[in-house]
Design a protein around this nucleic acid. Structure first.
Lengths: 160, 160
DNA sequence: TTCAAAACTAACCTTTTTGTATGTACTTAC
DNA sequence: GTAAGTACATACAAAAAGGTTAGTTTTGAA
């Protein structure tokens, strides 16, 4: 038997993900673009400055705090522990602390975190693969001053 | 020789994207995790709070400023124009202003922007599809106070 | 004996981001 | 005649993010 129906609470959250097929795109799109969509908060956490890099770093396997700190170059201890706690609270990774001294703590992705990390890395890989194009496109625009909003609007005409 | 060498400057950026195959994963991974990697800045722009939503909104086609403002619910005029300018400067979207009054300005994704938006949407879709799991995973952790770093370390043993 | 390493926390400060409110120039709708 | 809409800029204020330093506790290495 399926005890899925058993807990009963929060039907709303469970309803939306079930919608798949033709309508799903429009419905889901509408959700994220809505100000009160809970996905927005999750999106913020996962796309946070250090969150992205931690997820990517942990894809290679479990890692200790200080190893992560060295791997994710540039992160401070404070931001790393803050980021790890946020991701842990969201259920994207697990923390395993061994009661030894000096402390030994391992972090590893949960199945959920692994799925998220995969997607994040796909996006990150695209950026790295295309960083040349991107930088060139940027340079093609910054050198020349692009027309100001009012600059081209010297001669105004009524909207047709 | 090929005229690729002609401009001389920034060989480095062009070199990396050319690396593909077995080594690419390790190399690229290493780049983003390096503090001075230019991809990090691009990543910040694309994963900025409103940048993600603007890219997704523009995937359906060109849109005017005020239409975007209504579609991306919750964004202020200031942040929207700031976000649009940043994405435009990076070459992810184009701005087309018609010299009429009241002003009429259209924004649309460039080919580059389209590729980026696709990846971003894939990730966003995953979040929306799994928001139920995510929220449940979070709730499973927050109610109970998870062990403090020192809490479980009452009896300390030398690291083995 | 002093230092470094481990994995943090807490306090303090700076920087960045975001929001709010206002103004602009002109037109259309009420 | 007044309000609303258009696409912003600008100034100021609040909030969030980030950095730096110091401190904890114990071990092992120099």
């Amino acid at each position: 038997m399926n005890n899925d129906e058993a807990h009963g609470a929060k039907r709303d959250e469970q309803l939306a993900p079930r919608v798949d097929g033709i309508l799903s795109s429009a419905v889901r799109r509408g959700e994220l673009l809505a100000a009160d969509c809970p996905s927005r908060e999750v999106l913020r956490h996962l796309t946070s400055r250090w969150g992205v890099l931690v997820l990517i770093a942990l894809e290679d396997g479990p890692m200790r705090f200080s190893d992560l700190r060295r791997k994710v170059s540039g992160v401070s201890e404070k931001m790393l522990s803050q980021t790890l706690q946020a991701l842990e609270a969201d259920g994207f990774l697990d923390r395993h602390s061994r009661p030894v001294v000096p402390p030994h703590v391992d972090y590893n992705l949960t199945p959920l975190g692994h799925e998220a990390a995969e997607r994040v890395r796909l996006f990150a890989d695209w950026i790295e693969d295309n960083i040349g194009r991107i930088l060139r496109a940027r340079e093609a625009r910054t050198p020349e001053d692009k027309g100001h909003p009012t600059a081209g609007a010297d001669r105004l005409q009524p909207a047709e």
